[in-house]
Structure formats: C-alpha cells, structure tokens
C-alpha cells in the first residue's frame, strides 16, 4: 500500500530492480537523483531543451526531466552510471571523451554520453556517420564549455574504434 497521494512503482535501473513510492508529479530525473541517489544524471533546464538529463528508456534516449517517474514503471532505465565497469574502468566511449578532451565542467557530459551511446550502438557494424551526422545526433545536448569539437572528435573516434573491432 502506498501513502495517500503517492504511487508505488517498480522499474529496472541499470539492470537492477528497484521499487519506490513517488508523488505523481515527481520526474524521472528527480526520482533517479533523489531516491536512488544516481546523481550522474544532471538537470540543466527541466524544460527538455538542454539534454543534460538524457537517459535511455527501454534502449532509446529520453529526457528524464520530461518524464514522470510513474511513466517509467515496468520499464528499463539506463543511466551514465551503467557505463563504466565494476572497478571503474571507463567504457570505450568514455575513454574516447577523456582522450579527446570531450569535457570541461562535466555537467553536460552524462547526458552527452547517453546521446552519443545511442548513436554508437545504433551504428555498430554499419557505415560510420560523418561529422554532420554526429553533430545532428548531439544537437539536443547543449554544452556551454567546449564548443563541441572535442565531443565530436571523441564520438568519431569511438565509432572508428567500434568499426575497427567489428571487422
């Protein structure tokens, strides 16, 4: 039974089952951050414009500030915390960001990674996208620090590496 005004939900986050009690108005971003303490997902606007809150919902990128937590009930959420290995070793995409100076303050970075991850995973085995496609894929993620170039270079490198290993 849930408290009055609260709804109980069950969902999978980064492969683990979670349950929680939320107000209907609680956003998925707030639920992840406040209830599950997964603070890697950042909130930059709460309006759907900046992309800092990007997570994957059932495998597709989504803005967790525009979703209510209750909308994620019964579904699978993936956040930036899922990328690195158990000992903290970086995912190849994270590694590419690090090598290419694809971050400065780091605030947009988790959302940027999740958008880039969607591109990298969806293009596995296919022709690597060109620079224009990479830029389009992250056009919904605002970075105020970098001018995007390190990010674009990092994604390009991650795509090249993937193409290299797929061959």
């Amino acid at each position: 039974m849930s408290e009055p005004g609260r709804i109980s939900i069950e969902l999978t986050v980064n492969g683990e089952a979670h349950r929680g009690e939320v107000e209907p108005r609680t956003t998925l971003a707030d639920f992840l951050r406040e209830e599950l303490r997964l603070t890697g997902t950042h909130v930059g606007c709460e309006d759907g414009f900046c992309g800092a809150c990007t997570v994957h919902l059932d495998g597709a990128s989504a803005r967790s500030c525009l979703l209510y937590a209750v909308q994620a009930a019964g579904r699978e959420v993936r956040t930036v915390e899922s990328l690195a290995g158990p000992d903290g070793e970086l995912h190849p995409l994270q590694e590419a960001f690090r090598r290419n100076h694809g971050l400065q303050c780091g605030f947009c970075t988790p959302g940027m990674l999740m958008s880039a991850l969607e591109l990298v995973e969806s293009r596995a085995g296919g022709d690597p996208p060109d620079e224009g496609e990479i830029r389009a894929a992250i056009a919904g993620n605002i970075c105020r620090c970098t001018g995007y170039q390190g990010i674009v270079e990092a994604i390009s490198e991650a795509l090249d590496d993937r193409a290299g290993t797929a061959e």
Partner: peptide, 19 residues
Amino acid sequence: VARLDAARLLRGQGRYIAD
C-alpha cells in the same frame, strides 16, 4: 596531458551543489 579528473566526471561521479 590528459585531464587528471576526467574519469570521475565521465563516470557521473562529479559532485555539484545539487548532489
């Protein structure tokens, strides 16, 4: 030299005010 603190921020382990 590559940023010394990059890995932490990339993992989502940055600690900003809201955290």
